[in-house]
């Protein structure tokens, strides 16, 4: 029963977001009370659909390499030969996490200029830690008897990694990706301060012109995307979860 309700809610949310992106004007009456007198209720300086797509592209473009590098690093340091790099790797990904994203933007702009790049860099650094820690926990958390059986049956190192360790770690890794993705989705909004195309632009425009309707639609869209992606990846993780 609760599964049916969840599926219905999921479908309703996706439908609502799509409707809003495709025919935003239909929602104008709902948002008008929040717009200042004479001001637009729906952001009109760029298409909301195009901003959303651009927002998502920046997030994906930052998270994909972050996942690849974190998982790669976790694989390396969970091998006997890479074990000595563990403290160093931990330190690096932790610095990525503790550095405030605004500071990353401020430092990156002089080097790479305005636009999408500073945001990409900030999101990339932010995406490393959750995936790395989860991948490491997953790869080193294989039950000892299972690891022993894999070795004892004559699997080589790469075979153990690909056939046993990674499949067993996958749900945990996906959980890390889920966290990184949600952080990146919301953090990407500040990228608009350095001229990255995204939903932050709508929020900032709203703040600048005292238009609460803009702030609401930018914020709610970002939130809804985060919920949809978090939930969707959760579904994938459940499918891959080991049956044990």
């Amino acid at each position: 029963m609760s599964a049916v309700v969840a599926a219905a809610l999921r479908f309703a949310l996706v439908a609502l977001v799509l409707a809003f992106l495709l025919v935003p004007d239909a929602f104008a009456p709902l948002l008008a009370p929040f717009a200042p007198p004479g001001g637009a209720a729906i952001y009109d300086r760029a298409s909301l659909l195009a901003l959303t797509v651009s927002h998502l592209l920046i997030v994906v473009a930052a998270i994909v390499p972050a996942v690849a590098i974190s998982v790669g690093l976790a694989i390396l340091v969970s091998r006997p030969i890479g074990a000595e790099f563990l403290p160093l790797s931990r330190a690096i990904v932790n610095i990525g996490q503790t550095f405030p994203p605004v500071a990353v933007l401020a430092l990156a702009v002089p080097v790479v200029g305005f636009g999408a790049w500073p945001t990409l860099i900030a999101l990339f650094l932010y995406g490393l830690l959750p995936v790395f820690e989860n991948a490491l926990a997953g790869l080193t958390g294989v039950p000892p008897a299972v690891a022993e059986a894999a070795r004892g049956s004559g699997m080589t190192g790469p075979q153990r990694l690909l056939q046993v360790e990674l499949p067993l770690a996958l749900p945990v890794i996906l959980e890390g990706v889920r966290i990184s993705l949600v952080i990146a989705l919301s953090t990407a909004t500040i990228g608009s301060t350095v001229a990255a195309k995204g939903l932050g632009e709508v929020i900032i425009a709203g703040l600048n012109s005292n238009n609460l309707a803009f702030v609401l639609q930018g914020g709610l869209l970002t939130g809804a995307l985060a919920v949809i992606l978090y939930d969707g990846l959760g579904q994938v993780a459940r499918l891959t979860a080991r049956r044990g």
């Binding site: 039950p143 008897a145 299972v146 059986a149 894999a150 080991r242």
Partner: peptide, 11 residues
């Protein structure tokens, strides 16, 4: 090779 905790691959 067979062990006490069998070590069957859960996936």
């Amino acid at each position: 090779y067979a062990i006490q905790d069998h070590g069957l691959f859960p996936h």
